[in-house]
């Protein structure tokens, strides 16, 4: 269990990146959703002890983050948002180095762990290749491999699927799902709603340095029920619609357009309710619930 209380982070340039964050993260996959710049990465970097919070408390499996960094670091696996530029190590060396630093000291066990991990992320055949020469997807896989090599209790992955093709993305999600079976906490920070909807039991929504929502994806969906509408309009009315409501999608259907919008109610247009998905819920939450929507 990770408990975050009253967590604040103010950068030296005055940017208040985290504002009084309170969060409890249980075992299992936990999704952290939010737009770019919401403070997700700052929160992640604080959790992995790369960044010091300005105030507040973080407790990870009973360890106070301010005092027991070593203990926390020993149960942690981390895949940063950017994971592209490597020193000149071969693929297996990179994993071997990570394994050594995580306390797998027996050469035999280490070799076994490295080989198994390479195999499970499908990099065994390229283990002799310099990590820099791997493709983007392979690099991500190597990234998750190094985060998992020592069987950590907390795995923190920051925007792991950005830039991956759909196949690699699915593979990645599956890999994480497999791991989440073993009583570990996986925090998955993303701005891609699909990553969370398919894997996370619990999630939080971050915006502007604050937690806007904390609950299960289903609870999130509930908020959006009856708030998603389908409107059929003429082409010349499109602009008007988009000025009035947050538009999720516009699909041409012959001479008319089928527009999906989120709103508490629709006036002046004939609209039919639509069954929301998490993406709709996210938009509804971001645009309406948080009153970000302006129709100026």
């Amino acid at each position: 269990m990770i408990t975050i209380k009253g967590l604040n982070k103010v950068y030296s340039n005055g940017n208040h990146a985290l504002k009084d964050i309170n969060l409890e993260i249980p075992a299992g996959m936990f999704g952290l959703l939010g737009p770019n710049g919401a403070g997700k990465s700052t929160l992640m970097r604080i959790l992995v002890a790369l960044l010091e919070p300005s105030s507040g408390e973080v407790n990870i499996f009973g360890y106070d983050l301010r005092k027991k960094r070593k203990e926390i670091r020993s149960i942690l696996g981390y895949l940063p948002q950017d994971f592209r530029f490597f020193a000149k190590y071969k693929t297996y060396e990179f994993l071997d180095y990570a394994a050594r630093l995580s306390g797998i000291n027996s050469a035999k066990k280490r070799k076994q762990a490295v080989d198994t991990m390479l195999d499970s992320v499908g990099l065994f055949d390229v283990r002799e290749r310099y990590a820099n020469k791997l493709s983007g997807g392979m690099k991500r896989r190597l990234g998750i491999a190094q985060a998992l090599i020592h069987n950590p209790k907390v795995i923190i992955v920051d925007e792991p699927t950005s830039g991956l093709d759909p196949e690699e993305r699915i593979r990645f999600r599956n890999l994480l799902s497999e791991v989440s079976g073993n009583d570990v906490i996986i925090i998955l920070s993303t701005h891609i709603v699909g990553d969370i909807s398919s894997t996370c039991k619990r999630m939080a929504l971050m915006n502007n340095g604050k937690i806007s929502f904390n609950g299960s994806p289903q609870e999130m969906l509930k908020h959006a029920e009856g708030k998603v509408w389908r409107i059929k309009v003429q082409g010349d009315e499109l602009q008007q619609i988009s000025n009035l409501y947050p538009v999720i999608s516009t699909i041409p259907s012959g001479a008319i357009w089928e527009v999906q919008v989120v709103a508490d109610e629709i006036k002046d247009y004939e609209a039919e309710p639509y069954t929301p998905n998490l993406e709709h819920a996210y938009v509804y939450y971001m645009e309406n619930k948080l009153n970000l929507w302006t129709n100026d």
């Binding site: 992995v48 203990e71 895949l79 530029f85 490597f86 990570a98 990590a131 990234g143």
Partner: peptide, 14 residues
């Protein structure tokens, strides 16, 4: 320069 250095920084070494 290397973003991958951070994965070693989060290891339990001092």
């Amino acid at each position: 320069k290397l973003d991958t250095s951070e994965v070693f920084y989060v290891r339990p070494l001092s």
